[in-house]
């Protein structure tokens, strides 16, 4: 601006005043933005206080040694170093991934099938949707108590197995029993939620595609896998990413399922139900090692970040535009065959 006003450098006095006046109107201009900013501020203020601050503080905390009350002591990367040598931590990482895999893969598949059925269902759709969503809003603690009875040695699950002539399983006392019961609880809780997400995606697909598929004689499975799935890719990506983030933070199921009067055990026999967040909780809130817990939280963040990226790459791998010609080609082929 100065170059325009005065090539010599300093603008003349009255010019400078004009400049200042122009500048002084700027706050007035900004004042126009204050009401809308104020209107949206509750979210940002609350988010800053309850979201941003704790996140940043936990990063700070992960470099400290702190029992939650007394003075903090700076320890550098020591907590991270210890964590990398902690065999229980690595066991919990492995458990978390095993449980995540055991739960997420069948859960997303079931959700897709459910969504597809709900989409074609004509009667009571609303009631069905509510029914499938209910597990997601039920108190997890209460439900885990119920599942505790289901998976007991003499519980419902084993009675059912025996009724069809199989042996009972140590659901809460063997490695894969523990992982399966936790996974089943996760599936039960999240399948309806994801089905609703898929359903929303399904409803966005133009009905002509379904009609075309039907006219061309595609059966339900073909419609699901050849017509619906390719067009659902962004929704599947969303569901996969959120399931990864949720799945790697499994906590309540394991905590309540194995919280008994048995002193000092966490995560059940062999700590097979010990997940990363459960171990974090035990270290930070039971043993008051907040620095260690915070460091664990940040390692978990790193793990989740890496796996979200992998997921994203996997699911959104091929270009979506390729699918349309393929779909058209498929329909054409089918049509030709049926026409014959």
């Amino acid at each position: 601006m100065a170059t325009v006003l005065d090539p010599a450098g300093a603008p003349p006095a009255d010019e400078r005043r004009t400049t200042r006046r122009t500048r002084s109107t700027a706050p007035g201009g900004r004042r126009r933005h204050i009401p809308p900013l104020l209107a949206i501020s509750p979210f940002y203020v609350l988010f800053a206080v309850f979201g941003t601050f704790p996140v940043l503080y936990s990063l700070y905390l992960s470099f400290q040694d702190w029992d939650g009350i007394g003075d903090m002591r700076f320890v550098g990367f020591q907590q991270y170093g210890w964590l990398l040598e902690d065999s229980v931590f690595w066991h919990s990482v492995l458990n978390t991934f095993e449980i995540w895999f055991l739960s997420t893969v069948p859960m997303l598949f079931l959700a897709l099938v459910l969504a597809f059925l709900l989409h074609s269902q004509v009667r009571f759709t609303g009631a069905m949707r509510v029914a499938y969503f209910i597990p997601n809003v039920t108190s997890m603690v209460a439900m885990t108590v119920v599942f505790g009875s289901v998976f007991a040695q003499a519980g419902l699950a084993n009675s059912a197995l025996r009724a069809i002539g199989l042996d009972g399983i140590g659901w809460l006392s063997s490695e894969w029993g523990i992982k399966s019961s936790v996974s089943l609880m996760i599936i039960w809780r999240w399948v309806g939620y994801n089905a609703l997400i898929f359903l929303a995606g399904l409803q966005a697909i133009p009905t002509e595609h379904f009609e075309a598929a039907r006219v061309d004689g595609a059966n339900s499975w073909q419609t699901l896998f050849r017509v619906v799935l390719p067009q659902l890719r962004p929704v599947v990506l969303f569901a996969a990413v959120t399931s990864t983030i949720n799945g790697l933070q499994i906590f309540t199921e394991s905590q309540v399922l194995f919280q008994s009067s048995d002193v000092g055990t966490t995560g059940g026999p062999g700590q097979e139900g010990m997940t990363i967040v459960l171990y974090l909780w035990q270290k930070a809130f039971k043993e008051h090692q907040f620095g260690y817990g915070a460091a664990m939280g940040w390692l978990l963040f790193a793990i989740i970040a890496v796996f979200t990226i992998i997921n994203w790459r996997l699911v959104s791998g091929s270009d979506r535009d390729d699918d349309r010609p393929r779909l058209a080609g498929l329909l054409r082929r089918k049509g030709a065959r049926d026409g014959r």
């Binding site: 505790g148 009875s149 007991a152 040695q153 003499a154 519980g155 006392s173 008994s260 009067s261």
Partner: peptide, 12 residues
């Protein structure tokens, strides 16, 4: 009996 206290199996 190898049963965890407080579980349904324990009560049984």
């Amino acid at each position: 009996a190898r049963i965890t206290d407080g579980t349904p199996d324990f009560n049984a």
